[in-house]
């Protein structure tokens, strides 16, 4: 008799012994249990419906209307808003900038998080201090971060240009928030500075889970620090990296506050991303119909990016 057969037989016997008990439970109160279970779930379902499902459905409905605000009569306009969306060049430009914003965020915040995690893990002393100090920006509100960095970037009094001037790098002085090719990157630096602390903590946790014996073996094989990083550390961080990139993509898509505070989408739309344009349409122009279309577009974008990335990672892992 093979091991598999033995295991199957044992499982069958256990199932047979468990069956009467299960049937009794079912016989004793099957209907009551179902009702009770549903009743217990009801508050959660109601909250989910009220705060997630209903807003989604209302947003979809608004996208088919000419709604101009919460208190106005909205008329059904079919696909007019969707058609308008295809004809508005700012939407497509802001979509492109949103992709750029995502890439910047993943590279800057995720990259900085990884670098700082590696640096802190390599320290023999002061780990707690640096871990705490570097995480602190994450506790600051994004709006406040925006104000702080707008002052750092001030072309006349800002810290950045002043330091560059004083260390003899006057040629590097820029209008960080006024040059169209630079502004989105500059704002993203501020946003990433606020966000990298969380990713750093996740990477530190990942580093602590890597088997130390792999480093010992690498040492025995005479591996350099670089080789250990490439062949031991980074492969060991694979799962954490997947999680961090997914999180960074989602957080990147939510980017709004720093852009809104620091540039309001300007100059001349050079830093307009999809979320700031949604806000502008909904609350400045009161064009809720078109804003709702963009919300739906953004949701589809978020789902597509996340699913595609996770499938790509899953295929890579297989």
């Amino acid at each position: 008799m093979s091991n598999d057969t033995t295991r199957a037989g044992r499982a069958g016997a256990i199932a047979a012994r468990a069956a009467p008990a299960a049937a009794e439970t079912y016989k004793d109160g099957s209907q009551d249990s179902a009702v009770t279970g549903f009743a217990l779930l009801l508050p959660a379902i109601a909250l989910y419906a009220a705060f997630s499902l209903l807003p989604i459905l209302v947003t979809i409905w608004i996208s088919f209307t000419n709604s101009g605000g919460f208190n106005t009569q909205a008329e059904f306009v079919g696909f007019d808003n969707y058609l308008r969306a295809t004809q508005d060049p700012i939407i497509w430009q802001s979509l492109l900038r949103t992709f750029l914003w995502l890439i910047y965020h993943v590279v800057l915040a995720g990259g900085l998080g990884l670098l700082m995690a590696l640096a802190i893990s390599a320290m023999s002393r002061g780990r707690v201090f640096f871990r705490t100090a570097l995480f602190l920006p994450h506790l600051v509100s994004l709006a406040v971060v925006g104000v702080i960095w707008a002052n750092i970037y001030d072309p006349f009094y800002g810290l950045l240009n002043t330091v560059l001037q004083n260390i003899g790098l006057g040629g590097w002085i820029r209008g960080w928030l006024s040059e169209p090719m630079l502004v989105l990157f500059s704002v993203n630096v501020a946003s990433s500075w606020q966000g990298f602390g969380l990713y750093m903590l996740l990477f530190i946790a990942g580093l602590q889970n890597i088997d130390r014996s792999l480093y010992d073996a690498a040492d025995v094989d005479g591996a350099t620090a670089w080789q250990k990083l490439v062949h031991v550390t980074l492969p060991g961080l694979r799962d954490v990296m997947t999680f961090v990139i997914s999180l960074a993509l989602i957080n990147g898509l939510k980017g709004f506050a720093t852009v809104f505070v620091m540039t309001n989408g300007g100059p001349f739309y050079a830093s307009e991303i999809i979320t700031t344009y949604i806000y502008r349409l909904a609350f400045s122009a009161q064009d809720h119909g078109l804003a709702a279309v963009l919300c739906i577009m953004m949701s589809i974008l978020a789902i597509t990016i996340t699913v595609t990335f996770n499938r790509w990672r899953a295929r890579g892992a297989a």
Partner: peptide
């Protein structure tokens, strides 16, 4: 560079 300044600045 004034495009990078807000009113307060």
């Amino acid at each position: 560079q004034m495009t990078g300044l807000d009113q307060d600045a």
